[in-house]
Design a protein around this nucleic acid. Structure first.
Lengths: 146, 146
DNA sequence: TTGATATTGAAATCCGTTTTCAATATGACC
DNA sequence: GGTCATATTGAAAACGGATTTCAATATCAA
């Protein structure tokens, strides 16, 4: 059974001798309720709604913290900047990314994962993590012109 | 039958109304003979050997040009900066990347590609390109301590 | 050879991210 | 509650890879 996000964070904080703050709570709340694949910038704008005084740097720092605490996953797609995804601990998944509208669709495919392991084994390679991204046009964008 | 790199570049240049220059030749030569997965910085240092006056910006610009001409592929791994790979036009491949020593092993797996197409089809998604990277430890690095 | 224009190198700039630093907040201890 | 060491904050500066600017230079069609 998965812990509540707030609880998971405070356990991590106290375990590391770190402190709870209003800002960290605000960032976590915005992050959890916003959904997935947020850039730091996007999250910053969201957090500002509940806490207009929040600083840019604090959002960046807290995002790193959430990643360390296991609450967020850092991902870099081809658009250049880092995005964060909530709660990847309930199983790995990969992404379909629309190059026109930016929509991100998640998927899982056990068979592909197995084949990856086969490839790794043949190369005597021990996999720690992997990344599979399919770039293209989502159904909404296929009919559209540029 | 694949064209020579130099020929392919000059065809692209004249086709676009661009000019041949000593610098472009030097960058191309260094790029082709150096092997794969070079960062702009690495290539810059290489080109300097044959043309010490070469500028940083020229290497960046030429690398972009080679990518447009179809001679190079741009790739971003997790280490932050862009690398270029020669001659990907003879078939797609993916990468095993050692997180300890940085070694990059290429592989192809037709079955995985098929399964990716299946996933895309199910999501009514039209794939333009994809990226599959397995991060982990190569055989040389598995026995080593940090 | 000429002349329009593409290209170059150096330096400035860009932009996402990280770090610095002085002011402030937190929380363990009394 | 009060004290105090120290973690945290926001603003601004710094960072680092990549790109752009600009005046000087090279290219190439005529």
């Amino acid at each position: 059974m998965r812990k509540q996000a707030a609880e998971q964070l405070s356990e991590y904080l106290s375990g590391q001798g770190l402190k709870s703050t209003r800002q960290r709570d605000d960032v976590l709340n915005a992050f959890v309720s916003a959904g997935r694949h947020l850039s730091a910038e996007e999250l910053y704008l969201l957090v500002k709604k509940s806490n207009p005084g929040i600083g840019y740097a604090t959002v960046y720092r807290t995002l790193k913290l959430l990643a360390e605490a296991g609450l967020a996953d850092e991902r870099r797609f081809e658009d250049g900047f880092t995005r964060y995804e909530y709660n990847a601990s309930d199983g790995h998944h990969d992404h379909l990314i629309c190059t026109r509208c930016g929509k991100i669709i998640e998927f899982e495919n056990e068979r592909i994962e197995q084949l990856q392991q086969d490839v790794a084994r043949k190369n005597r390679f021990k996999v720690q993590s992997h990344k599979l991204e399919l770039y293209g046009l989502c159904s909404d964008c296929q009919g559209q012109r540029k």
